[in-house]
Design a protein around this nucleic acid. Structure first.
Length: 426
RNA sequence: GUCCCCAUCGUCUAGAGGCCUAGGACAAGGGCCUUUCGAGCCCUCGACACCGGUUCGAAUCCGGUUGGGGACGCCA
């Protein structure tokens, strides 16, 4: 049975690259009906933090990935020591004065089979002796990794390209310990637009940041899927279940992929469009609350749902909603100076007054009646509707773009509309 | 510096010797719609890094060059 693992270190947040490695491991396990295990590599006591661990687990769950088993290296320390001592006894390792245990690397030509790269050849004479157990008694990465992968029965080691150079060191350890070798699959790295590694300087890197920016987990997972792998039928939008049925680690590309936020935005917008409105609203509410636009006890879901419907087709991220529909949730709109100059240089008192007067007289304040009023004003004053529609939009929303104006007026309500237009009547 | 990996439009990719005057998506540019565009629709631009082989035939195979990336910790 296939058994794979994702082995994050709780010394930082779960970033995009790690998330994709995690995703590919999980996908492969699902595709092969195997097991996916999570192993926390927390042997660096100084740098490992509980908050990072919590964040990593939460991010993995958020992506919709569940693990079958969970291990902590910090709870397996005696195991590593045991195997190190075995190597010591067999004279394959030696002890330094500071008590560290060091593995002897013998020169040889090593051929490693990789599911993605094919055969990779190394000359171990360029590798120096490897520390197995540090002076403080904790194991080094390569040693703990091998002991765990072997004793946990990992059949496929799927990890980032940056581990290729660790592989010969690990293979030597497998051989020395008499463990059977797993299959290796080194997936390409995700690069920043500038070409190097993804870093905070080049934009968001952690999964939780993307979550806070308003990306849906389904969309982010879909995007990550498309980096270094493709369903081959020109399909861009692919749900996770479909991916499970199509995925094979052997079909992952060898080439590094550049992270492109534009494409992520597009995919996210596609998912938002397809999302059930009620559920979208529930996802939006926390964003609105964080901005102070709503609080727990003034939730009018029916009303909110209508506003959400106005924007559903135009959003790239959930945060766009908070920024674009802000004028529904505040008392007064702020209008930038440039817009004021552009739209209100000419006095619009007459136009706004007439429009408000007609709205006031309406028997029923609804979208089609609002439009009717508006058309009458335009007709009576003999102006082009554009001449009035744009200033009204700016006066009400503080923006030059947005949903249809008559819908805006309706959902904003007569009171706010009146107040915002009166401001421009002398 | 040493070792390793990689190389198709700006970006993500399809392509496993003839189906390729290289397909799709994002972005960009243009147009249409119209009450605005950040939505929608349509169109356009745009790539096999280079040089040698192998072959009747190469984006696809081989070698080299160049370019990019990664690793060389008692970090993981």
């Amino acid at each position: 049975m296939v058994k794979v693992r994702f082995a994050p270190s709780p010394t930082g947040f779960l970033h995009i690259g790690g998330a994709r490695t995690c995703l590919f491991n999980w996908l492969y396990a699902q595709a092969k009906k195997g097991k996916f295990i999570l192993r926390i590599e927390d042997t660096d006591i100084k740098r490992s933090k509980k908050e990072f661990l919590d964040e990593i687990l939460e991010s993995i769950r958020w992506m919709g990935i569940q693990w079958d088993e969970l291990y902590f290296q910090s709870q397996r320390l005696s195991l590593y020591k045991e195997f190190a001592e075995k190597l010591l006894r067999e004279n394959k390792a030696y002890r330094e004065e500071n008590q560290a245990i060091v593995f002897k690397v013998e020169p040889s030509k090593l051929k490693i089979k990789d599911l993605i790269h094919g055969e990779i050849e190394f000359d171990t004479s360029v590798i120096k002796d490897q520390v197995l157990i540090k002076a403080d008694g904790t194991p080094t990465y390569n040693f703990a990794c091998v002991v765990d992968d072997a004793t946990l029965g990992i059949t496929h080691v799927i990890r980032g390209d940056d581990h290729i150079s660790n592989t010969p060191k690990q293979v030597l350890l497998y051989e020395a310990l008499g463990f059977p070798l797993p299959e290796f699959a080194h997936i390409p790295l995700i690069l920043s637009k500038e070409g190097g590694r993804l870093s905070k300087r080049t934009g968001a890197t952690s999964i939780s940041e993307f979550r806070q920016m308003g990306y849906l987990s389904e969309a982010l997972v879909n995007y990550l899927l498309l980096l270094s792998w493709s369903p081959k039928d020109n399909q861009e939008l692919i749900d996770i279940q479909k991916a499970v049925s199509l995925f094979d680690i052997k079909e992952v590309n060898k080439t590094a992929a550049v992270f492109d936020i534009d494409k992520l935005n597009w995919i996210n917008s596609q998912y938002i469009k397809k999302y059930p409105e009620q559920e979208l609203l529930e996802k939006l509410i926390p964003f609105l609350m964080r901005r102070g636009y709503l609080c727990k006890d003034n939730l009018n879901r029916e009303y909110l749902l209508n506003v959400v419907k106005l924007y559903k087709e135009r959003l790239s991220t959930l945060r766009d909603f908070v920024e674009w529909a802000d004028f529904f949730f505040v008392d007064e709109v702020t209008i930038e100076k440039e817009l004021q100059e552009k739209f209100f240089k000419k006095d619009l008192s007459k136009e706004f007054f007439l429009f408000l007067e007609k709205l006031e007289r309406l028997e029923e304040f609804n979208i089609s009646n609002i439009e009717l009023c508006f058309r009458q004003v335009v007709k009576e004053l003999n102006i082009d509707s554009r001449q009035l529609i744009h200033p009204v939009r700016v006066a009400l929303t503080g923006k030059t773009v947005g949903p249809g104006l008559f819908e805006i007026i309706y959902y904003l309500g007569k009171e706010k509309v009146t107040r915002r237009l009166k401001r421009w009547i002398n």
